[in-house]
Design a protein around this nucleic acid. Structure first.
Ligand SMILES: Nc1ncnc2c1ncn2[C@H]1C[C@H](O)[C@@H](COP(=O)(O)OP(=O)(O)OP(=O)(O)O)O1
Ligand SMILES: [Mg+2]
Length: 429
DNA sequence: CTATCCAATAC
RNA sequence: AUUGUAUUGGAUAG
């Protein structure tokens, strides 16, 4: 089933299934006690409050949390310990997706977010260490950078073909029963399992009416990312067992192979494997291709003159950055110039912080220099002193020179790395 | 070393 | 308005 008729490939073959060892770690029976422990709960409430998220279906804001904790918590605690707690439905919010289309968020009540967070804090330390080393998304201590670097290393080993898979509406299609089955193999506390099940079937509020959801884990629930990793863990382990070189970030899976043929075989197998999980591979976003043709987490790979594989900024990400810079500089809606520059610096610094992983040094170095230039101004040196109307234009010109043409309307494109706009270095009043 | 606040990116 | 997880960085106060 797993291995379709393919011969001579470097990957080994092995039978599936290995059955997890009962439960993870000691004391999985009294997990709910850990969840409702007041220290754990305080930490959870703090996190939810600091996220500054908007209310769920009951309209309670995060500012009202302390009051809620005092008045509603004792009752909730008892219900949780009895395994009889019923979460509220989530609030449906549509937001635009990066690649077009809409993302359906499911926003739980602030109170439910606290409880889910409290559960996460108990489950994450137990479950996460059991996950595959090849899985990077939503996991503490593992970054997108780690995933990209790992993929680059696989490519350096000569695996230049990639099976690129993205799942369709991933969170929305997670099967409740199958997920619960996975969880039941790892956790013994039946009250906790019951509440997790109830969170999954809490449903959505659609103009005053609760609509049952028979599948999916809400995009917006604190627990959902962990549950998603639990759901796909078995696939990770199977790929591992077969000795595949792969990296997974959430629902973005890359298997690196040495030939197109091997890739197509793996792709076919994975489509079937995901179908077994009631998940569908996104046909438009998934393919077998040369790694250099497929961006990953905002980066792409390329080969330098010496034949080394290097990490670069994917062109989509580059275009998005330019667009944002244009948007921040072009027309300023009643903002002062210094405000515009400050915002631009802030954005570019954050951008570079992520994309600084890139090893392509064509002009991007200068973005860094430029950004630092504008930013590294110790003390509370005010931007106001050195910024004048021309600073804005120069900033745009510099970026344009580093990154490419930014706009049609004003691009002198005569940057000069050593332009004089840094003149007001000294402290200011 | 602790705490609060802000920002960027990935999904 | 827009939720969540994770990573990385900055500022400020002790
Ligand atoms: N802003 C977000 N808030 C909460 N969860 C998110 C967010 N972005 C992504 N996720 C989670 C839920 C998604 O199901 C999962 C994978 O992301 P993504 O592939 O971009 O969307 P998707 O799988 O839901 O739809 P698509 O069919 O377009 O791939 O990551
Ligand atoms: Mg997807």
């Amino acid at each position: 089933m797993w291995a379709t008729g393919g011969s001579g490939t470097p990957e080994g073959s092995e039978e599936a299934s290995s059955a997890r060892t009962g439960n993870e770690g000691p004391g999985t029976r009294a997990l709910m006690e850990e969840v409702v422990d007041h220290r754990n709960l305080e930490r959870a409430a703090k996190r939810v409050r600091q996220n500054r998220g908007s209310p769920g279906i009951d309209g309670m804001t995060v500012e009202e949390l302390p009051r809620w904790m005092r008045e509603q918590w004792p009752g909730m605690r008892e219900q949780l310990l009895a395994g009889s707690y019923e979460p509220k439905p989530v609030r449906r919010v549509q937001i635009p997706k990066r690649g077009g289309g809409e993302r359906e968020l499911g926003i739980p009540t602030v109170g439910d977010r606290v409880i889910q967070q409290a559960i996460l804090q108990v489950l994450q330390p137990r479950l996460d260490p059991t996950f595959s080393d090849h899985s990077y998304g939503f996991r503490p201590g593992r970054s997108a950078h780690d995933a990209v670097s790992q993929m680059r290393d696989y490519v350096t080993e000569g695996r230049v073909w990639v099976v690129d898979i993205d799942l369709e509406k991933f969170f929305d299609r997670v099967n409740h029963d199958m997920l619960m089955g996975r969880l039941a193999k790892r956790l013994e506390d039946r009250r906790l399992l019951r509440t997790l099940r109830r969170y999954l079937s809490a449903g959505v509020m659609v103009n005053g009416v609760k609509v049952e959801q028979r599948r999916g884990t809400p995009q917006g629930g604190p627990l959902s990312p962990l549950l998603a990793n639990v759901y796909l863990d078995e696939v990770d382990k199977e790929l591992e067992r077969r000795g595949h070189a792969f990296v997974r970030y959430a629902d973005d899976l890359r298997v690196l192979v040495r030939s197109k043929r091997a890739g197509e075989r793996v792709m076919g197998a994975l489509i079937k494997r995901f179908a077994k999980l009631r998940l569908r591979v996104n046909e438009s976003k998934s393919t077998v291709a040369r790694v250099y043709e497929r961006p990953f987490l905002g980066f792409d790979l390329w080969v330098n003159k010496k034949g080394e594989t290097k990490i670069g900024v994917a062109s989509k990400s580059m275009e998005r950055m330019k667009e944002r810079v244009r948007e921040l500089t072009n027309k300023r809606r009643g903002r002062r110039v210094e405000q515009v520059v400050w915002q631009l610096q802030r954005y570019l610094q954050g951008w570079w912080r992520y994309f600084g992983l890139t090893e392509s040094r064509r002009g991007l170095r200068d973005v860094e220099g430029w950004t630092k230039n504008a930013t590294d101004r110790r003390g509370r040196g005010r931007v106001g002193l050195f910024v004048r109307e021309s600073a804005l234009a120069q900033a745009r010109a510099t970026v344009a020179a580093c990154i490419g043409p930014l706009s049609v309307h004003s691009a002198p494109a005569r940057p000069g790395p050593s332009t004089t706009w840094r003149t007001g270095t000294s402290s200011a009043a």
